[in-house]
Amino acid sequence: MSQAAPPLLEVEDLCVEFRTTRGTIRAVNGLSYSLREGETLALLGESGSGKSVAAQAVMGLLDTPPAHITRGTARLRGDDLLALSPERHRAVRGTRLSMIFQDALTALNPVLSVGDQLAEMYTVHRGLGRKAALARAVALMDRVRIPAAARRAHDYPHQFSGGMRQRVMIAMALALDPEVVIADEPTTALDVTVQAQIMRLLRQLQAETRMGLLLITHDLGVVAETADRVTVMYAGRTVESANAEDLYARPGHPYTRGLLDSVPRLDRLGKPLVPITGSPPPPSSVPTGCAFHPRCPRAEPRCGTDEPSFRTLTPTGHRSACHFAEEVHHVPVG
């Protein structure tokens, strides 16, 4: 990946709060990342880490109230998406920026045939006539390798298998040649053999279109297979970011290291698992200081009070938010 390419999507210091009658919850707290053309960036985090809320904020899909974007910018080739009016944001959505959701069955319209749903993208956004739009829809289904596309265009979402439905979702996201596609757990609902097909398809389509792909997931395996760079989130904050190989070989944050030590791996038969103690905190009660300190084997008293800075460890841009980042990064995973 060329380091010199200008960022396509650059998110800086994003903060999202939910204000409810029972108090304010800070779901995303100072998230920054940048995504370049043709690049896949993974946003890795567990439930409650704020990864999906962050994506919805960029997409303009959060309802205010209760959600409030209190700080930050999200620049798509320089245009700040967060400063757009809801109408302008809607115009960007689908055309320059689109999203693939986890559950295609609820994301697709059940009473419109798949061909009609895809064709609608072209009649509404490109002003094509019905016939021309339907032809484009079939071509698109072909492109995401749906067999017998012309015939299947008349089918409804429930008539497709889970894997084929996810292909329809991908077709929908790619219909208008967006610059950035955000995929939120695109394969979590799928079986492993179908997951492998879908991730390969996304990689192939990315190579064809040079789109930037933001992959939101909790799955360390999917990230390792697909991502060029990784940003790890914990309790609404960025704890580490690096290119994928560096992150897996020499993580610079005890949380990332803990995740890698705790997943059973097919290539390490019989290796004991070293779990992280405790559970991720709910966004309503994030610990002070470093949010990971109650679960951290390396924690010292100051971790409970001082929030670590997010600093650079290597010339390749490996960054970590841990007081002992250099020390943690020094030890390879083994």
Partner: peptide
Amino acid sequence: LFAAAPVPDPRRRAPD
């Protein structure tokens, strides 16, 4: 099944 299961190590990425 083994071939499709992703291994959490980018250096062992399956070829496309």
